[in-house]
Amino acid sequence: MKVLKKEKFPQIWQAINQAYELYLPIEKDDRVNFAQWTEGETVNLEALKTEISPKDVIFPQSETYLKFESDGKKLQLESVESENREYVLFGVRSCDAVSFNLIDNVFLREPIDRLYEKRRNKGTIVSLACSEPEENCFCSSFQIKPEEASPGVDVAAWDLGDKILWKPVTEKGQVLTQKFAQLMEDASQQDQEELIKLQNAIKEKVKELPLASVDPKVIKGELKEIFESKVWDELSQSCLGCGACTYICPTCHCYDIQDFAGGNCGERFRCWDSCMFSEFTLMAHGNPRTTQKQRFRQRFMHKLVYYPNNHGSYACVGCGRCIEKCPVNMNIVKVIKRLGGEG
């Protein structure tokens, strides 16, 4: 276990940036989001969660993977290799770290999504424990422990005031630590004790959160029973059908594939898409989901029933972003409670 003094932050950002691409929570126009660091950016590790989840780093919103040229008869296809270097993603909260594993379950199962795999393998993830969980956090509903290193992260970090405690947990994490060890010190006995204090304090805070009692297991019954519940009519009425929840969500991972062309040549890219959009399932000969109720239901059924059936865990990490961002305050907590019979 190491200790990194906060006064060394500018130095370590610079140093990491020499060897890797560095992604950090960066403040711009009063808003904090993960972005690639460059000299002069304002790093904000105090803000608990970024507005948009960091999934963009492992699964970019748009990604070109094919170039083509066609004269109508002859066709040339060339796959586009990503040019990204190894990167460090620093300051990921537990909820977001777990969301990466949930997306892995889909993209890394056979047949493996090579674009994603490559990008994922190039990353070293440094998590940062949540010293001050917020009112709309409910990660504990999904057994996530914001005081601990989440499964899958390479280095776990805790904020101890004027320094962070730095604990490499994987081989990649060791490599990163060794590379920048000259900027760190060994953690003292006192640091270790402070860590335990902090972890206990976080645990207590999480217990006290207003949404701590939210429990997705209140949703019981067979898939079809839940699907046919009357609750969907009522809940979906206020949905505007925008994709704000989808795009800020750390676990939503549906995508579209589109071609962009100018003249004879062009590119094929994939990009985030939302099941909330009307043309999401539109085919040449019809659309199985023509109403917003059907689309709304799909999003929550996916997170709370379909994904769990396929992968054994809920596809929500309780980050609370949808609670904050839905234009009409409809969110997964309301859905869980209502499906569980509340209200």
């Binding site: 925008c242 795009y247 234009p327």
Partner: peptide, 24 residues
């Protein structure tokens, strides 16, 4: 912009039956 369409969908002046941006 993350292309979420929230601005459009909330807008009372955006009330087309089918928006050009939804028409692939």
């Amino acid at each position: 912009c993350i292309r979420c369409n929230a601005c459009r969908n909330v807008c009372p002046a955006c009330s087309c039956e089918k928006c050009i941006f939804d028409n692939s």
